[in-house]
Design a protein around this nucleic acid. Structure first.
Lengths: 257, 257
DNA sequence: CGGGACTTTGAGCAAATTCAACCATTGTGG
DNA sequence: CCACAATGGTTGAATTTGCTCAAAGTCCCG
């Protein structure tokens, strides 16, 4: 959803302009999907739309978790750090994803914009009040948490037991699945994040990521058209490597990836 | 809570016997803690108590998630497998832990008893009905999921970025914290699981686990009294290795570990 | 164009794995 | 009650995968 007032005037009729959420382009994949128009209006009252520039942090690990976010544009990485700077990216968040699930009122990780990011921001306190009146919302939150948990467990299997090639294959297929779910091709996959980010997500170094990409290219499994763009050429081989019987699962719904 | 009727007669007065949950020794750390006596009575009506022998599976990954469980005795390991048998244990569950969170109505992992395990089993269908009437319960379920998520993210950092020694140190401290929370010493730590299980949990081989234990012993960090029992001797050194500033966190509440 | 950030490639290295043998503990049957 | 088989744990040597350090190459963008 563009937060730009002028843009709203161009894109929306006057009726819709009173309800920007109703016209949000990620509405049907986001948490708002479960709300009816009346409820949506209440939600709008407590929402702030904002933009974050690349490399800016959205919130920091261990800070009081005052806000929750809905990503409406751009890509976000979330990570945890060790004292000496080693970093583990625990997820990437894209439009439609819900961000900011906390533990004991502290953020469990730092969130940082990769590209220019657009967000809907909710006060946790106010949202919690709404939760009491709309159990649907609470149920959906539980759903979101359970999705995130499922992908976290897949990721543990990847980090603990898969080889570098298996990790990269799994990663590319997950991105491809996500692109498909959002109506994009599924063969052409965009990589908004750097090689270093991919490494920190998969528990590898950027060098290993790079080498594995070139190896896949030489094997005819993928085509690399610029560093931030991959075309899957032998999906079946990638599935076999990733440990998927056939195409489907990877991480069925959003959450992280 | 013993499910044995005769044992109940011995241990409990007639008033308590009508409400075994009220006398459950993990009641105050488990999901039941949020229920008042009346609600507890309703819960009891839909609960089945059962015992599972070591190495028996409680449920299987990808099977329809018909039941939820509360562990009341013994230790459970939950894991995911790759086609060639590589295994990642995603968590250990102990008395008081809630087991069986599912994704898309399928279990996300296989659960297997390590020792003899005692469980309270709920039908998911019936519990969901109760959920609608007791929002407290739903809130607590969300809490449980969020705890599990937080430890899953800690585990990703461990699996992706920590060395073998750091992993083992983190593991021992987490077990120690749990023992403390349950009123046990915190220095003497019990290891109901095998070296292989520890390896599959930490993304290592059993040989590396074993070598690291002996190295810790030689360094005076721990004492090994029998394979399934460790005494922490230099907690500060272990904390430093684990990447903890001081003693506390690791994984603040249950969920897994 | 030129400069900076990111990516790729190469060579040597190291942590953890693999494979194999040995040891300890436990429980069972002779 | 002891011998011995079975299971799980430890130790060693060789190997390997992925890492580190270093240099060269690319791609944006102003």
């Amino acid at each position: 959803m563009p937060s730009d007032k002028a843009l709203d005037d161009i894109l929306l009729g006057p009726a819709d302009r009173t309800s920007p959420c109703a016209a949000c382009d990620v509405r049907d994949v986001s948490i708002c999907a479960v709300l009816d128009p009346d409820e949506l209006k209440r939600l709008e009252k407590i929402v702030t739309r904002l933009a974050v520039q690349p490399r800016e942090t959205i919130f920091c690990e261990a800070a009081p978790a005052e806000y929750l976010f809905n990503v409406t544009g751009g890509a976000v990485k979330v990570y945890k750090l060790l004292a000496d700077g080693r970093r583990q990216i625990t997820g990437f968040f894209f439009p439609g994803d819900f961000l900011g699930l906390a533990h004991l009122n502290k953020y469990a990780y730092t969130a940082e914009a990769i590209e220019e990011v657009r967000l809907c921001r909710f006060s946790r306190r106010k949202l919690e009040k709404m939760l009491e009146q709309y159990p649907k919302l609470e149920k959906h939150l539980l759903q979101t948490a359970s999705n995130e948990l499922a992908s976290a467990q897949d990721q543990m299997l990847l980090l603990g037991r898969k080889t570098a090639r298996e990790r990269i294959a799994t990663f590319l297929l997950a991105l491809s699945e996500r692109a498909k779910r959002h109506g994009r091709s599924g063969e052409r996959v965009n990589l908004p994040m750097s090689r270093g980010d991919i490494g920190d997500y998969l528990g590898l170094t950027m060098e290993t990521v790079s080498r594995t990409f070139t190896r896949f290219k030489n094997d005819g499994k993928v085509e690399l058209t610029g560093a931030r763009h991959v075309t899957l050429q032998d999906r079946q081989a990638l599935c076999r490597l990733a440990g998927l019987v056939e195409d489907e699962p990877v991480s069925a719904v959003a959450g992280s990836l």
